[in-house]
Design a protein around this nucleic acid. Structure first.
Lengths: 149, 149
DNA sequence: GCCGAGGTTGACGTTAACGTAAAGTGCTTG
DNA sequence: CAAGCACTTTACGTTAACGTCAACCTCGGC
């Protein structure tokens, strides 16, 4: 319903970008999820924030990871799948050849998934067009003016 | 892994198209799901096959519905959402104006969903490109030839 | 000094979408 | 006619992804 604009506006004042941190509540509102969700993702190995004492402190890196995670979810990937990619990405610098090969496999897999989804979306789009036009027909048949948009 | 080609080849011999029926097992193999899944969809009001005695008999119409249902699922819609559209579509001819307005709302909603998914896919695609190219770099740094495709 | 706003860790509850096992029906095939 | 195969219902089990308490800390402000 409400469109969030994921803005990344540069802070005036030239703060050293990397120093910005977030509380769990801030992140939660930012992405419209609950703190519980964020803690759960941590428990599942998708996030690993620092601690100031007992409380979690999130940095830019964590924010990005959360963003990617949620995007993956919207695309229907399971948390396990997302973790698989994210963790391997982090382990890349010292990853051995086998691991990297595996990573490439996974990526190809995801890519195929995306392709199929694109096709599905195109098809679904047509279906919706069809249903909608039929609905409009019936409506005007009833002498009701269908909404323009 | 295996690409099914959802073929709808016209039967030679000019059979009256509408007469073709399917068993639950046939449909299951056709779409690579289990019979249990198909029965579950029926129980959830997404399918309503005829019965020859006790056994279910599916027609072309049912096959299409199952196809649409599975497509919707791949796009992350819940069975409830899918049912909402499918049932209203069927009720269209005698649907009153209110119902149809509601249907249009739902359709707009789904459409918005698809738009967001398209954007997500584009973004995700870039991420994958990025991760992959970095993985390939590291691999060749190790003196290993990364697979071309 | 206490209060409210936010944070924390358990631990149990819930929902969706099936899986799985048991027990029975019905055809057709050797 | 027995065996096998595909179908049926009933019912309980399972997994993912959180929701929902309860009970506790901790900090800034009045």
């Amino acid at each position: 319903m409400t469109q969030r604009t994921e803005s990344d506006a540069a802070q005036p004042g030239g703060l050293p970008r990397q120093r910005r941190t977030f509380s769990i509540g801030e992140l939660a509102k930012m992405f419209e999820v609950t703190p519980r969700t964020i803690r759960f993702y941590e428990q599942e190995g998708l996030l690993a924030p620092e601690r100031r004492g007992q409380t979690r402190v999130y940095r830019e890196k964590d924010r990005v990871r959360l963003k990617l995670t949620l995007r993956g979810k919207r695309l229907g990937f399971s948390l396990a799948e997302i973790r698989e990619v994210v963790m391997m990405y982090d382990a890349m610098p010292d990853g051995n050849a086998r691991q990297l090969q595996r990573l490439l496999e996974i990526l190809a897999d995801k890519r195929a998934n995306l392709e199929r989804q694109l096709e599905d979306i195109r098809l679904m789009h047509r279906e919706l067009d069809d249903v909608e036009s039929r609905a409009r027909e019936v409506l005007s048949g009833l002498g009701v003016e269908p909404p323009k948009h």
